[in-house]
Amino acid sequence: FGVSVEAELGRVAKGEEGESAVEILTDPSDVVMFCEATDVDALAVAVGTVHGMQKQEAKIHLDLVDAVSEVSPVPLVLHGSSGVSDNDLKYIATTGFSKINIGTRLKTVFTEGIREVLQNDPSLNDQLKLLKLAVLRVKETVKEKIELLGSGNRV
């Protein structure tokens, strides 16, 4: 159908809706077979990240990051990256990972921005102004992450 397909091999420890899930780390020996059998364009793997994590406290298995990077025939994706320390993110960005999802952090920054704007101006009732001000915080966070991951000024 001409669309890019991303699959996940393994299971990240927590669901996107906050439900508990058992972590199943990706086995590097399964990566090549899975990619060949499915013909996916990108592969998300479980290396210790957690969906929906608010603090950067995930215990990343860097040895697994390296092992999966060495064997994967397709670009790798990291789900649940909001809980990964900046040092680990910098390292992961130098391996076979081409896409790093940080959605929870951006959602949190957006919500904090709305709270801050309304706290400073409780009578504000212009939703467009409110959203524009909250989006500015998201934009700054995105810029910080782009620089952190070494993706600045890249095409």
Rank of each mutant, 00 (worst) to 15 (best):
V22A: 12
M53E: 15
L62V: 11
S123E: 14
G18W: 09
S82A: 10
I100E: 09
K143Y: 05
I102N: 05
L148Q: 10
S29W: 00
F97G: 06
C35E: 07
V12H: 01
M53I: 03
F110P: 03
D86M: 10
V47M: 13
G52I: 06
E17P: 01
V31G: 06
G96Q: 06
L78R: 01
V109N: 01
L106M: 14
A42H: 07
E19Q: 15
G2T: 10
G152I: 09
A67L: 02
K55F: 01
V12E: 05
E23S: 07
E16I: 13
S98I: 03
A93Y: 10
V40I: 15
S69M: 09
F97H: 03
G15M: 13
E19H: 14
V65A: 11
H79A: 04
L128D: 15
E147I: 13
N120K: 15
N125L: 13
F1Q: 09
V135P: 00
D66Q: 11
M33S: 14
G48N: 03
K107R: 11
E140A: 12
V5M: 01
Q119D: 11
V47N: 08
K99N: 04
T111A: 15
P28F: 08
V71A: 08
F97Y: 15
G52M: 09
A37F: 05
T104H: 01
V32S: 03
G48M: 06
V77T: 04
R154N: 08
T141Q: 15
P28G: 02
K145V: 10
H79M: 10
V40K: 00
E6V: 11
D39Q: 13
E70K: 14
P28Y: 09
K107T: 08
I92R: 08
V12P: 00
V50D: 04
A134L: 08
P73L: 04
V5K: 00
S20W: 12
G2E: 14
G18A: 03
L43H: 08
D66T: 12
T38R: 09
D39G: 10
E70G: 02
K90F: 04
I24D: 07
L128T: 14
T49V: 04
H79I: 04
G113W: 05
L9A: 05
C35A: 14
G103P: 02
F97T: 03
L106R: 00
K14N: 12
T95A: 12
G2Q: 13
A58T: 00
V77R: 01
G96V: 09
P28N: 02
T94M: 07
E116T: 15
F34A: 15
D88R: 01
K132N: 12
D86Q: 13
G150F: 02
S123C: 02
